[in-house]
Design a protein around this nucleic acid. Structure first.
Lengths: 152, 152
DNA sequence: AACAAATACATGTATATACACATAATAAAA
DNA sequence: TTTTATTATGTGTATATACATGTATTTGTT
């Protein structure tokens, strides 16, 4: 769907302005698709993101800061997302003996299982719902990284 | 900045998978830039979006539904965003005489003024911070609309 | 006209975002 | 070594998101 239809507007100053809104809209669209899949596991988008990050270092433990800097949305409140994962027994939380300021997290068996199942669903979104070949995707990646070149 | 640096990950299944995460991260990055500008006006990103939509039809009035279908993030709770704009006297809310189910909104003078000033700041973000020429932006728009071709 | 269905909006709840601030622990400096 | 600064995390608040449900109003059907 064209952006013009999606947000019922035609008043873009130029292509760059339209691209900005297009990125925001596409992100919302993608997040909605993913959340729909995650719902059957009782996971939110950000909870899934934390599980995925923990898996990356598994079975190593990770502290809050290391998780936070890997989040897609940097302003996420990681301690509270973890609170909910701990309640659901998907994540284990304990204190670091070396540095008592640290709290360290790791996946439980249940966390590993639910991550594995939900990742299948997420991969399905990327493989089947997103209509894009590898060359186009590579080009898109270049353009997005070009946009952020002046990352402040 | 490369996505790999931004989220400290290199485990992308393929370019399409990376593109998905890249869109989500770029949207967060852009939203953060815009919110930083809006903060000096006491506006949130979504409040700004509602003001912008109302301006599009101004001086005509708009009902909640018409605003909602123009929002970038469709799951926004428009009545409550308007609550806050009414408290700040940027938006006027009244009942529609023809259909009493409708609530109709329009910008106040203060709303028009703050929108005009904040839009200057937002345009500045697009013109000066986003590093992209018109041809690249047009290509990016094509790719984003290609990704959403299977819009469900 | 009376009833059922649809529409528009408001409201409630759990979670997340964005950001400020508090607290405890460690590192650095005097 | 005492003081100061920094770091890591937790907590608080206002707003937003995602979604379910309630309520008034209008429309369609008989």
């Amino acid at each position: 769907m064209k952006l013009e239809q999606a947000i019922q507007s035609v008043n873009f100053k130029n292509e760059t302005h339209k691209a900005g809104l297009n990125i925001l809209y596409t992100a919302w669209w993608l997040k909605t698709l993913m959340s729909k899949e995650l719902k059957s596991f009782g996971l939110t988008h950000e909870q899934y993101n934390v599980l995925r990050i923990l898996k990356g270092k598994s079975p190593e433990e990770m502290c809050v800061k290391d998780i936070a800097c890997r989040m897609i949305e940097k302003s996420s409140n990681v301690p509270r997302i973890i609170d909910r994962l701990v309640i659901k027994k998907l994540v284990r939380r304990s204190n670091d003996a070396n540095d008592k300021r640290h709290t360290v997290m790791s996946l439980t068996e249940a966390g590993l299982n639910i991550l594995s199942l939900s990742t299948q669903k997420i991969n399905h979104v990327f493989e089947k719902t997103i209509l894009m070949n590898e060359a186009s995707a590579a080009e898109l990646n270049n353009l997005l990284e070009l946009i952020r070149e002046n990352e402040s």
